[in-house]
C-alpha cells in the first residue's frame, strides 16, 4: 500500500506544476486550469494526510476543497467571460493597467 509520503510528494509536485502554469501562462483560462491543478495537488495532499490519522477528516476537507473549486469555477469563469467581453481577448496582459 502506498504510503502517505508518496502522496505528499505527488501533491507537492502537482501544486508546483500548477503554480508554474498560473505564473507563466497568459491565457486566462489556462491560468484558471492551473489553479485547479493546484487544488488537485491540495486534494492529493489532504487525502495523503488523512491516512495518517484515524477518521476521515482529510476527506471531508477534500470535499470542502471541492466546494471551493466549484465556487471558483462558477465565479471565475463568469469573470473570465466578462473580461473577454470587454477586451475581446483572453490575454491577461491586457489587464495590466489599473484603469478599465
Amino acid at each position: 500500500m502506498p504510503d502517505a509520503g508518496a502522496y505528499i510528494v505527488l501533491g507537492a509536485a502537482l501544486f508546483a506544476v500548477g503554480m508554474v502554469g498560473f505564473l507563466a501562462r497568459r491565457n486566462l483560462i489556462v491560468m484558471f486550469l492551473s489553479t485547479e491543478i493546484m487544488l488537485q495537488g491540495v486534494l492529493v495532499n489532504l487525502v495523503g494526510f488523512n491516512r495518517m490519522y484515524a477518521g476521515v477528516d482529510g476527506q471531508v476537507f477534500g470535499l470542502f476543497v471541492l466546494v471551493i473549486a466549484a465556487v471558483e469555477a462558477g465565479l471565475g469563469l463568469g469573470l473570465v467571460v466578462l473580461l473577454f467581453r470587454r477586451k475581446g481577448t483572453l490575454d491577461s496582459e491586457v489587464w495590466a493597467t489599473m484603469h478599465g
Partner: peptide, 12 residues
Amino acid sequence: GGALQGYGLTMA
C-alpha cells in the same frame, strides 16, 4: 507592472 502574474511571481 500591473499584471496580476507579475505580482504573483513576486509573491512566489
